[in-house]
């Protein structure tokens, strides 16, 4: 089980702030592909994934128990 967080535009698009994904292991690239398929218009090319509050690269592996967050382009300040 992997926990997923959605923020800002993605929270509105998916209609949820978080959900659980039933996987033991998945790469960041695969997770983004899954999100794009599940939520048309996700715009995965411009979304980063944070795992346990750290930015990741596309080939990084996410494991059961990890907390993931989809990070659309930030605009703080």
């Amino acid at each position: 089980m992997i926990k997923l967080h959605y923020f800002a535009r993605l929270r509105e698009l998916t209609g949820k702030g978080e959900e659980m994904l039933e996987r033991d292991e998945i790469t960041v690239r695969e997770l983004l592909e899954w999100a794009e398929t599940t939520y048309p218009g996700f715009g995965a090319d411009y979304v980063q994934v944070a795992v346990n509050e750290e930015y990741t690269l596309l080939d990084d592996i996410i494991q059961s128990g990890d907390v993931c967050a989809f990070i659309p382009p930030v605009s703080g300040g």
Binding site: F7, A8, R9, A50, Y55, A69, I71, P72, V74, S75, G76, G77
Partner: peptide, 10 residues
Amino acid sequence: IKEVVPIWKK
């Protein structure tokens, strides 16, 4: 902050 902090403005 504008580069890396996960904060979003609408």
